[in-house]
Amino acid sequence: MAGKRKPKIAVWKFASCDGCQLSLLDCEDELLAIAGAVEIAYFPEATRTRLKGPYDLSLVEGSITTPEDAARIHHIRRSSKALVTIGACATSGGIQALRNFSDVKDFISIVYAEPAYIDTLTQSTPIGEHVAVDFELRGCPINKAQLVEVITAFLAGRRPKTPAHSICMECKRRGTVCVMVAGATPCLGPVTHAGCGALCPAYGRGCYGCFGPMEVPNTEAMSGAWKALGASEGEVMRVFRNFNAWSAPFRTESEAHEKEE
């Protein structure tokens, strides 16, 4: 990124709710400064402008669920110097990866009267299963301060600082009393990746895993603690089957409880 040319940024969408790319527009205080520092070359949700690649930084939202998208992501990778996935869909397949545990034909016929019109893959998969990814930003949705950090870091040529420890550390830092210890409320915080700022415990409820698995999660012990608080096999299975259900640690754990149920 030498010289005076502004770095070109592109924002791409696959199967998703648009929330993670909206996070960029939700940076109300930083948006015009970011837009001043970079050239927004492709971002259909925000602009009609479409500039050709190569792009210095591609932000990718959403998971791969159609044959066209499985091909499109390779074109994007080839035209991007750095590719960063934003959010749980792009990083672990998203809530739509719940189809991966069922027969997708049944799913189509539940939602659509004419299944023949629908072209979809049997699985929803993260971007990293298709192409090399330079950095994965977690969260459903991502944290917008972390998004600004990721963009800043890539433009400066350094790794982003986004801690991979658990939600528990964020509760301690925030001064939230443990909802599990003090309130006997089942909480997924001990195995969940930091990033949200430990919101749920601060609002008196247990974590439900929006940021996916932390770096070395002991999911088996986590399930044991849930059951000790009275959770059923089905409840344990379902809490691992949310927005990061297809990430390996959560997938393995939920499958263990599916058998038990």
Binding site: F14, A15, Q96, R99, V111, Y112, R238
Partner: peptide, 27 residues
């Protein structure tokens, strides 16, 4: 691409539904 929310809501506990349906739309 379709995401099949109505299909994977089947089998969920009623308390889990508002956390899941929120994910239909980020706006």
């Amino acid at each position: 691409p379709p995401r099949f929310f109505e299909a994977f809501l089947e089998g969920r506990d009623f308390n889990e539904v508002p956390d899941i349906t929120a994910r239909i739309c980020g706006i």
